[in-house]
Design a binder for these strands. Sequence first.
DNA 1: TCCTAGTACTGTATGACGTACACTATTTAT
DNA 2: ATAAATAGTGTACGTCATACAGTACTAGGA
Lengths: 116, 116
Amino acid sequence: MDPLIHSLLTEIRRGNLTLAVLSQLRSPQYGYSLVQLLKELGVVIEQSTLYPLLRRLEKQKLVTSFWDKSDKRPRKYYQLSGYGEEVFHQLRKEWMKNTKKLYGVLSEGEGEHEFD
Amino acid sequence: MDPLIHSLLTEIRRGNLTLAVLSQLRSPQYGYSLVQLLKELGVVIEQSTLYPLLRRLEKQKLVTSFWDKSDKRPRKYYQLSGYGEEVFHQLRKEWMKNTKKLYGVLSEGEGEHEFD
DNA sequence: TCCTAGTACTGTATGACGTACACTATTTAT
DNA sequence: ATAAATAGTGTACGTCATACAGTACTAGGA
């Protein structure tokens, strides 16, 4: 792939990954399971991208975490905080609005409407 | 607005603005007219954001430019290059695909489908 | 006639995040 | 015994939207 296209696609992922991750933390998930879960939903994310993101979300108090060591493998679970639910709701609302607009802009001059 | 939400929305705009601008350069446009045109389409962008972006796009050879000094006001027109059209087409395709997926993810657990 | 807003552009620095990379550790499968 | 999978921590870099400073001229209003 053209390196420039790859770079531009990375920019497009910024912010979008935050939304995708927050959307799957209404119920507790641990890091590795999020990678799998999101992959099933069509959102591919590397561990090297997810863990720093989870770290930032916790720092921003959008999620909380706890260790579950009852299994042979200790796992760190993350879940939306109250504040995180509010922020997620607003972000999701803005995302829907802005994406619909950009979709309209990008659909101009093309006969097809791929969301239909 | 919560500064964190503002910051996250800025991240979401990255990449998206590139697509919006490229989409309006199939025909030549000058900077200031792009601001107005995009505003009409619901994509609000400041001059302080647009001009550096146009500069970068030209540097990346996605657009070409020429001065029109026939009017009292000299204007710098920009237009998609051949390469830019290719890149735009691919980006737009990827954006549609990825956005549809994220839309599906964000619509889970909500009864409504706002794109319908 | 003067002043402000609008029109039109150039240049530069900053903050934030996806990403790559290095690293650690244990369990499971081959 | 070894490699892959599972599960996580930490750090540095490249990129771009944004803010800010600045320049310049025209048009409109007082």
